[in-house]
């Protein structure tokens, strides 16, 4: 009986947590269907009197969202693929290869994780402007092609695969390169999926950096594009929320399909082995 009660209590707490996470999203969807005055009404309205689906059409035409969408896709795909490639190679080197200064280098990289991202904005901007890359895809992609967080996570997973598998592969005639791609990477599928999804979401949602390095409309990504609804005369919340909804939908879909891997991957990397 006591067990049952504690179980009910547990579910109650979890459900409460889930609801807390969901409320902003529900509020966003609700607001996206309201009329202008309804959005700022006190007490707040949850269900609008008339569901204004037209808000979505209006929002979509308010800015070149198709262009932003294409930009976001390009930046996200190239960043993710590029970062994954560099990270897999670096993680393999740190996990398996022997070279001079390996541990020292690893410590230095580990140290960079303590530098707040905001501190890097100015030096990165200066570097990129010297390379005349401001306002190009290069500026949006280049700084994110390496991530030590990803390297670290993958290294932990690579290190937890038994040495004997490596020796077996060597005896079977696999080079380090072949071993990495035909054995180690497929074996680490769940971790790789997890870091991929995290990177896709992070890259898709990134706001600050694209805002800083792009000023032409052509180069903007979706999150930056959402600013179109904020003018000197105030914010059109219902349109902003409608646009936000269709901006996050691709990520929600990605997450729903892959959440199993994300959770497995993260918990695995943490426990090691």
């Amino acid at each position: 009986m006591a067990k049952k009660i504690s179980r009910v209590l547990l579910y109650l707490i979890v459900a409460l947590g889930a609801l807390t996470m969901l409320i902003p999203f529900l509020w966003m969807i609700s607001t996206s269907l309201k009329s202008g005055p309804e959005t700022i009404k006190v007490p707040p309205v949850w269900i609008p009197q008339v569901l204004r689906w037209h808000n979505y059409v209006e929002a979509f035409h308010a800015a070149p969202f198709l262009r932003y969408f294409v930009n976001s896709v390009i930046v996200t795909v190239v960043t993710t693929v590029g970062q994954l490639l560099t990270s897999i190679l670096a993680a393999f080197a740190f996990a398996r290869l022997r070279f001079w200064g390996k541990n020292f280098l690893f410590m230095i990289f580990l140290g960079t994780m303590m530098i707040p991202g905001e501190m890097l904005i100015i030096p990165n901007f200066v570097t990129l402007s010297k390379m005349s890359l401001v306002n190009t895809y290069g500026a949006l992609i280049l700084p994110w092609l390496a991530s030590f967080f990803t390297v670290f996570t993958l290294r932990q997973t690579f290190q937890s695969t038994p040495d004997q598998i490596y020796y077996a592969a060597k005896m079977d005639g696999a080079s380090d390169w072949k071993y990495l791609w035909t054995v180690l990477v497929p074996m680490s599928k769940s971790t790789i999926t997890a870091v991929t999804v995290l990177e896709v979401i992070g890259s898709w949602n990134s706001f600050m950096w694209p805002l800083i390095v792009t000023n032409s409309e052509k180069m903007r990504t979706l999150p930056v594009g959402l600013q179109a609804f904020t003018t000197d005369a105030g914010t059109q919340y219902q349109l902003l929320m409608a646009a936000s909804t269709f901006v996050i939908i691709p990520m929600v879909i990605v997450y729903m399909f892959l959440q199993k891997y994300i959770i497995a991957g993260i918990s695995k990397a943490g426990l090691k082995g």
Partner: peptide
């Protein structure tokens, strides 16, 4: 070579 823990490729 056959290793003590077999070392088959799990995937």
């Amino acid at each position: 070579m056959v290793f003590q823990n077999y070392s088959l490729y799990p995937h």
